[in-house]
Design a binder for these strands. Structure first.
Length: 503
DNA sequence: AAACAGTGCGCG
DNA sequence: AAAGCGCGCACTGTTT
């Protein structure tokens, strides 16, 4: 009887060689400015202290809190916070968690009209930064270097994950937090940190599967912009009136959520709330609320799943946009999703284009996302293996030091900068597309680099200055794969070492 | 003291 | 009929 394994030979090799490459990367490690980390800890601690003192002025709330919980008072407790705000003080909130507790996340708390909330949330954020990103970082640093782990065995989608520290969730979207934390990551002396990102890799991998002609057109034609166009639809704007923030909302509150399987009720809510929260305006400077009013929309709607949206509400409008999005704009994508779910229901498992099998109980949204998320990462993993190999072959001093799902971080000597950037382009784009014939849309990367000796905060877009681009290595050195066969004595030495130390 | 569930939040 | 994908870490409060 043949043994069933959950992946093809090709997939096995990807994991096998990927694990080895990641192990090398883990050994390389990242340089950390430990003096800075100490200073930052000190500074953030002091700031928290100052803010806590200010928070004391909200006697109306803290008094009630201490009175209720006495010796058990804990300002970090969500349970206590929820009880004080929504039961004792009577602020109303319909938001409950799955297990029926009061929701106390940022979004919910921000709906409370009391200055206490803003101060409380600011402190909470700083505390997280301090304990996770500064103390947590410091705890893992050895002699000025950090060695995060990259795992291939924990994500259900065959993506990677990272721990000790988690290198894949370092703050970047909030500039204030990013500045505090990323300043700690520095290149080795005389070098730069260089980061190569795949642009929109999940969207491109998805297109390879559903082959929707309109989506492929968006990817191929650089004058087209899907997110801008969807922002136009959602907010009923002319193309030239879509500002940067409005496009951002179209992308992150409609397009991506829709791809992941969200529906109009939640999209309408976040798109609507963003207008106030982000103070969205048109390019001509008109508030989107006013703009929508001119278009006849003044209300969000009830957002009640049990009843159909009412004509003239924003909810109704977004429902129409959703319908248009899947039925008119990307019908082939919609059909693929339907067929894909059908196929899973019929036989109980899925095969990714990279040769992995996903099995077990899956809901609709998992079924349509797994074969995209995994392979998008596999493009990166394949590149990581090949890039690492090429760096060895060329005897470059560049060190690969980390990976964040769709980007590669390297510590690059200044004199190797352009060679590394061109090599990345060759491998991550040209060779990847040649290797996997299921990739039927163009793949692109973007490069960012810090100045020499500059911290990770200071990375900026970079382009290679070498006109001739990638240079082939000649003569070709033997394949890295054959290394152990060419060095049997080293193999023996390693086996002996393992016996002595790990027996 | 250690393990577990629940919540919240950082990233792609 | 169902209703946002994938992670890791810190913390609270309960159970073992």
């Amino acid at each position: 009887m043949s043994k069933i394994i959950p992946y093809t030979e090709q997939a096995f090799r990807l994991l096998f060689e990927g694990a080895q490459t990641l192990a090398q990367i883990e050994c390389n490690g990242l340089r950390i400015d430990t003096d800075y980390v100490d200073r930052a800890i000190e500074r953030v601690q002091n700031k928290i202290k100052r803010l806590l003192a200010e928070l004391e002025t909200h006697k109306d709330i803290l008094g009630v809190w201490k009175k209720k919980y006495k010796g058990k008072t804990n300002f970090n407790s969500n349970e206590q916070l929820g009880s004080i705000m929504f039961e004792v003080l009577g602020f109303s909130s319909p938001e409950k968690t799955e297990s029926g507790q009061w929701k106390t996340d940022e979004e919910t708390l921000n709906k409370i009209d009391h200055p206490f909330v803003k101060d409380y949330l600011e402190i909470k954020k700083l505390k997280t930064t301090l304990s996770v990103n500064l103390r947590g970082l410091k705890r893992e640093v050895v002699h000025g270097y950090l060695y995060p782990f990259f795992l291939l065995n924990s994500a259900r989608t065959y993506r990677s994950s990272s721990e000790a520290i988690n290198f894949q969730n370092i703050p970047i979207r909030d500039p204030a937090k990013a500045r505090i934390v990323r300043r700690a990551f520095i290149p080795r002396p005389g070098r730069r940190l260089v980061e190569n990102d795949y642009s929109g890799i999940e969207v491109r991998v998805a297109a390879c599967l559903h082959k929707d002609p309109r989506m492929i057109e968006y990817i191929k034609d650089k004058t087209k912009d899907m997110h801008r166009d969807m922002a136009m639809k959602c907010y009923m704007l002319a193309q030239q009136e879509v500002s940067k923030n409005v496009r951002y909302c179209g992308k992150n509150m409609f397009v991506f959520p829709q791809f992941y399987g969200d529906w109009y009720i939640d999209c309408a809510r976040s798109l609507w709330e963003a207008i106030e929260k982000m103070k969205l305006i048109t390019v001509s400077g008109i508030s989107l609320r006013k703009h929508l009013k001119d278009k006849g929309i003044t209300k969000l709607g009830r957002l009640d799943p049990r009843e159909p949206p009412r004509l003239g509400t924003f909810e109704y409008h977004i429902q129409q946009v959703e319908k248009w999005f899947w039925e008119e704009m990307f019908p082939a994508y919609a059909k693929w999703r339907k067929d894909w779910v059908q196929l899973y229901k019929k036989r109980g498992w899925l095969l990714t284009p990279t040769g992995f099998i996903c099995q077990g109980y899956m809901g609709k949204n998992e079924i349509i996302n797994y074969p995209i998320q995994g392979p998008a990462f596999h493009c990166l993993l394949w590149s990581l293996i090949e890039l690492h190999r090429a760096i060895q072959k060329r005897k470059m001093k560049t060190l690969l030091v980390g990976q964040i799902h769709d980007s590669i971080v390297a510590d690059v000597p200044d004199e190797e900068l352009d060679e590394y950037v061109d090599l990345s382009q060759e491998i991550m784009v040209n060779r990847l597309m040649k290797t996997w014939d299921w990739i039927i849309v163009p793949i692109e990367i973007e490069t960012e680099a810090t100045p020499v000796d500059g911290s990770w905060v200071t990375k900026k877009a970079y382009e290679s200055k070498r006109k001739e681009g990638f240079r082939r290595l000649k003569p070709q050195t033997p394949e890295w794969r054959e290394y152990w066969h060419r060095h049997p004595s080293e193999q023996d030495a390693m086996i002996a070492f393992r016996k002595e130390n790990f027996a």
